[in-house]
Design a protein around this nucleic acid. Structure first.
Lengths: 341, 341
DNA sequence: TTGTACGCGTTATCAC
DNA sequence: GTGATAACGCGTACAA
């Protein structure tokens, strides 16, 4: 059973020293004579040598590993961002250690410990719980950290994500333009995830600014309960004697859009007559009959920015101020917000 | 900037030797006196010590790392399997290094090299190209290997995936039962992915066995072209003077189902009257009007089996025969294969 | 430009 | 039971 060749064997095969081989693979070939380079290259090829990253990491702390902690790997948004992160890593010669917490704070702690035990050089966190203390300890130790999508109060770290206020503004403007005057905002429980809070807050502020009426409903129970609440919203009589005003639903993210669509279809609502708009673009949004209007996040850009932020960190200098990188979404207008249909 | 404590510091703090501390964390506590255990535990806690996996991996080759190479991370099926893999890893105290090849054989080679440089203890491969030589070299070196979903001719390794023949049989039986007699099988180019070939072959064999008529179309071009072909299939006159027979589409995987649904809706077809069935269950299949009938793969089980197979490999003994673990799908019948609708 | 010697944090081996 | 010591494969002063 042939073992993998080590740097020593390559050195012997090439008639050179460890040091030279090491330099060769560390990208310092310009400091070697062309002849030596050639010999080393040939030897390495013959022996199929690859530097052992474990040993490399042990020495200088250069593991070339980036850790990414995702709250829900089955969320297409997370995967899309991960795709961007991966591409950026590849361009930098970094490897990506991915852990999924399934929104379990306990698991999150476990995985955090796991990743640090592999001496990751940077950490991208899409938090499920509030591991503030653990994370702060890591940044204090000089580990570059980037928060993805979800903010964490007590941690000084860059944040990369959506411009939630702008997103809600775009949504409200679009809905108002299309003639919807009474809105129902649907969200998952906003307690633990900062974007949910930001979006909800902005929604409520945005209503009054635009003289719209509306309310928010937090999904917690069953599909049935959601459907009941939507039905109540759609069927109750218009307020204050004003004439009948078109009503629309605004969904805080992809999961909510799915649930809301299911509910609307079950209620027999006609999309468009009943407005429907969601944050996060999904495969199937164009398929549901007149098409569902969405706000698409630039997931690839978000992913790449996460790595860029990580790399921009002055390594050990923790003096750099935490920055925010907020990306603007794009409105994809479809039939579900077209009254004339 | 506080560094992470090392085993030496813990040993000193606990008044013990490196060896004992190492044993403590290697799970050999039963070979230590309770008193020593206690002292080590206390010292480790005080210093917030965590074993350095890099150093561990260097010594014994025990990186506790599993590599997973995915052809397309944005395919929900892959993510679902990955979820199962991850869970299994966690239960075994393993970490998962995930790489996405975006179906690029070049990238696949790169990532393969990357993973081995991290001394992964096992590899799960959902192949994009045919890195047979590289993989065989790895198994020869004693690295446990599992092929996921896609077979690779020249490599002796376990395969975990769908029972494709059974899946097609189930689909054909279901369609025939529901009264569809003329079928169009839609697939992506079958050249490089073994499941596509297996499914296609079985489809053609299954037709004659059931006295159904049908044909296969390989998607390669645009949506428009697909729509044209589907339209041609749906509108041409019945063969051999037999009366009009209900027609149905069978989609080889989730991506195809999406494209086919788009095409059908554009053509204004009524689902059910025109049958539609797809392999792979997706979020939105229940949403499209009468519901789209699917074959759901047991993704979680597949993922867990992949790790189980990896761990079952006798490590260095390459004598173990390559086994196949074929899972049976489940029919989720919906309106798209109900003629009466 | 090239080679020598040491250390990174851990585990395995062998004494006690 | 416990402890000293030698690897593991590599990077890097430092010397030549």
């Amino acid at each position: 059973m042939p073992r993998r060749a080590t740097i020593i064997e390559v050195a012997r095969e090439a008639g050179a020293s460890k040091t030279s081989v090491s330099r060769y693979f560390a990208g310092e070939r310009d400091k070697l004579s062309p002849a030596l380079c050639e010999r080393i290259a040939a030897a390495a090829l013959r022996l199929d040598y690859r530097p052992n990253q474990m040993a490399r990491g042990l020495k200088g702390g250069h593991s070339r590993l980036i850790g990414m902690l995702v709250a829900d790997i089955r969320n297409p948004f997370s995967v899309a961002v991960m795709h961007g992160v991966e591409r950026a890593c590849r361009e930098q010669g970094l490897a990506l250690l991915v852990c999924n917490t399934d929104n379990d704070p306990e698991l999150e702690r476990t995985h955090l410990a796991l990743m640090t035990s592999y001496q990751v050089e940077g950490l991208i966190i899409n938090a499920s719980g509030s591991p503030d203390a653990e994370l702060q300890a890591l940044t204090d130790r000089g580990l570059p950290l980037v928060l993805l999508d979800r903010e964490l109060g007590a941690v000084e770290a860059d944040l990369v994500g959506l411009d939630n206020a702008r997103a809600i503004d775009l949504a409200l403007d679009h809905l108002a333009e299309q003639g919807y005057g009474e809105l129902l905002y649907l969200s998952e429980p906003p307690e633990r995830a900062s974007p949910r809070r930001e979006r909800l807050t902005r929604f409520q502020a945005g209503l009054t600014a635009r003289r719209l009426t509306g309310e928010a409903y937090t999904m917690s129970g069953s599909d049935e309960e959601l459907a009941r609440n939507i039905e109540a919203f759609l069927t109750r009589s218009a307020p204050k004697g004003s004439g009948e005003v078109p009503r629309a639903l605004l969904c805080a993210n992809g999961a909510v859009t799915l649930a809301a669509t299911r509910a609307l279809l079950r209620l027999g609502a006609r999309l468009g007559k009943t407005g429907l708009m969601g944050i996060d673009e999904l495969d199937w949004c164009a398929l549901i009959d007149p098409g569902i209007t969405t706000l698409a996040q630039p997931t690839e850009a978000i992913g790449q920015q996460a790595i860029a932020s990580l790399l921009a960190k002055p390594g050990n200098q923790a003096d750099a101020k935490a920055r925010q990188h907020r990306f603007e979404p794009r409105v994809i207008a479809r039939g579900s917000t077209r009254l004339s249909g």
